Amino acid sequence: MTMELPVVLVLWFVFSLTVITNGDETIDLPPCDYSAIYNFGDSNSDTGGLAAALYPEGPPSGETYFKMPAGRASDGRLIIDFIADNLGKPYLSGYLDSIGSSYGQGANFATGGATIQRVNESWFQNGVSPFPLEIQVEHYTQFKDRSAYFYKETKDECLRKRLPNPDGLSKALFTLDIGQNDVAFGIRSLSLEQQKTAIINVVSQFISQIRVLYERGARAFWVHNTGPIGCLPVTHAKVKDPLPGYLDEIGCVKDQNDVALLFNQQLKVEIVKLRAELTNATLVYVDMYAAKYELISQAKNQGFEDRFEICCGYHGIDYDVWCGNKGNVNGTEVYAGSCANPSAVISWDGVHYTEAANRWIANRIMNGSLSDPMVPISRACHKQMPVS
């Protein structure tokens, strides 16, 4: 006797699969059942780490969604928040934030100003975080070991719910979004030839930390490359009477973007090599640069104002008044408050993106169309994936 599945259940199963073509081969990928999300990065994905460890962002940050400062360099949510939404997970608590945090379905080790490279004392004067990627990975290791101990030892069910089940580690998604500060530091302090050498070393350190995460149980990696630094409004605001060729066709500083592209090219090469080494891992390389450049170049077609508009802050050739601060602009004291409509502006403070821009970028990357392999984030745990 055979049992037939209900029609509704059959249809649900069929349409829950993602069908990907690899040459003549068709691969069906069911949704991944991620146990948690663990994120590593800089201010582009910091949800409260640096604010808890050092000085928090003040008003008007957080005004759009959280209605108060929420440890994010934006008026609202970041790309990592929209990723969590997409995967049915709560917003990630910063590992360094002990107040009101829950880590049952993930944790965020990112901190604003973080680099891939190890830092020294002089870097701190340039706003670099004391928590580079190596330290973030060490924080993860401490978190993994200590949470596993307390999860097994405690009889407090409320505490257990706030901690990850150690048996689900291999089913977690590990997201990494870091490198922008390394590239920016090189642009400020090194010649072009020195930057090329530095990029090789920086990417090598990046790859070595992915190896460490793999050795400590990570299996599914979603790795963002770095964005178009030369398109940041704070960079554009410093340009005066540029020579021909200094800016690209949309007004971005071409040399700075070229360095970011060199970093991305090297990162992709090394990720491809790493796939052959870490045979039980899935490594998805995500072209964040392409997504951000597309948004910036098509700003008005996508419902945004001028691509170099800044919502909160004043920046010029010889002055910077950062969001939420007072300062002097051409002899007049000003307060850098929020613009009237942040949802119509791409840049929040000249460096970071508004919630509206972060939502646009997240939607652009999560479907996998800008990834290698071209797989949506909801299916990024599968080993059998086509690679471009």
Rank of each mutant, 00 (worst) to 15 (best):
R216E: 11
K326F: 13
V259W: 00
S45A: 14
R216D: 08
N363R: 11
Y55K: 12
D177C: 10
G100A: 13
L5H: 02
D145M: 14
G106R: 00
P376E: 08
N301K: 15
R160F: 06
A357Y: 03
P233F: 08
A114Y: 04
L267N: 05
G368R: 03
F150I: 15
C311R: 09
S147Y: 02
I37M: 01
F40T: 00
D85K: 15
I20R: 09
D182E: 06
R379C: 09
S204G: 06
A357M: 04
V259P: 00
I20E: 02
G179E: 04
L267Q: 10
S189Q: 05
E134M: 10
I210W: 01
Q195T: 11
L169N: 05
S101Q: 05
L169P: 03
L278V: 02
G186N: 07
D248W: 04
T64P: 04
R216W: 02
M68Q: 15
H352N: 06
T279N: 02
L159D: 06
A36P: 07
N301V: 05
H315D: 11
F174T: 00
N44Y: 12
I361N: 05
A362M: 01
T2C: 07
N165P: 06
G186M: 07
Y335W: 10
A220T: 08
M3G: 12
S93R: 08
T26L: 01
Q384D: 11
Q105P: 10
S204H: 12
H224D: 06
E309L: 14
L243G: 04
Y353L: 15
C311W: 07
R219S: 00
E134Y: 10
D318Y: 13
G331S: 09
V375Q: 05
N108W: 11
D306V: 00
I79R: 01
N363Q: 12
V321N: 05
M374R: 14
A237L: 03
T141F: 02
I207N: 01
C252D: 12
